[in-house]
């Protein structure tokens, strides 16, 4: 019990130092632009198929599941607004971030863990290349900037999925559906939800990198790093979401 608590405090301390180092290194030249673009491509573009499928299904299922209840209250025409608000404010950011935690945080954890175990990170260091700047800063920046873009994309695909879902049992034109979507959508629905996705992206990258960079020697630790990155990143997404909702509720 005491050892477990000690580990939690040690981990918290280490991850704080790791985060502080990120903010120290991120503004210091040289900037690894090419590696950042390569990571953005890997995080953003290569996640598109997964985000498209899940985003579409989210919108479709949400519409089909909500329709009978809305119809019972005679509020079927509110369905486009309800679906888009649910997607934009909560469902798309959290589900997309969780999918990215599974795909990206585990990938980063495994890749860096394997580089650590096979001394590739040491090789960079002895070649006077700053591995933290090259491997960690670029990945955290890429996830911080790409996750919000993926979430906005998932919002749009999900809303379109809602349109398809609505037309499974009913009939509504695309123009009327999107008029319904934007009718009740406000600036304050979009902005806080988008801001929190930057934090989701930052923590997905940070935790993936931290777990991989600190993998102990031995091949088993690569699996442990990947697994632990997914679990911790997923948990952190829920905690950030809870805090974001409280803060939004307080100010808006």
């Amino acid at each position: 019990m005491i050892a477990g608590l000690k580990n939690i405090f040690t981990d918290t301390g280490n991850i704080t130092v790791f985060t502080a180092r990120f903010f120290k290194e991120v503004f210091r030249p040289p900037f690894q632009i090419n590696e950042f673009l390569r990571q953005s491509y890997a995080v953003g573009y290569k996640s598109l198929p997964l985000v498209t499928i899940t985003g579409f299904i989210m919108g479709l299922v949400l519409t089909i599941q909500s329709r009978p209840t809305m119809a019972k209250f005679g509020a079927e025409s509110w369905l486009p607004s309800m679906v888009s608000l649910s997607l934009i404010r909560e469902i798309a950011p959290v589900i997309t971030a969780l999918i990215c935690a599974g795909k990206i945080a585990s990938g980063i954890g495994a890749e860096l863990g394997s580089m650590k175990v096979t001394e590739q990170i040491d090789a960079m260091e002895v070649s006077a290349i700053n591995p933290y700047k090259y491997l960690v800063v670029t990945r955290i920046l890429a996830t911080t900037l790409m996750i919000p873009i993926l979430v906005i994309y998932a919002d749009l695909v999900g809303i379109f999925g809602g349109y398809v879902g609505y037309n499974v049992h009913g009939s509504m034109g695309l123009y009327r559906y999107f008029t319904g979507v934007f009718e009740h959508l406000e600036f304050l629905d979009v902005v806080p939800a988008t801001i929190k996705t930057f934090f989701f992206g930052f923590f997905i990258g940070l935790i993936g990198c931290y777990k991989g960079f600190n993998a102990s020697n031995g091949t088993a630790s690569v699996g442990v790093a990947a697994n632990s990155a997914v679990v911790t990143a997923s948990l952190s997404i829920f905690i950030i979401d809870m805090l974001a909702v409280q803060i939004t509720d307080l100010f808006f």
């Binding site: 394997s114 580089m115 096979t118 001394e119 590739q120 040491d122 090789a123 960079m124």
Partner: peptide
């Protein structure tokens, strides 16, 4: 390095 430590 012992195993080359090439960037794979």
């Amino acid at each position: 390095f012992q195993n080359g430590a090439l960037y794979d």
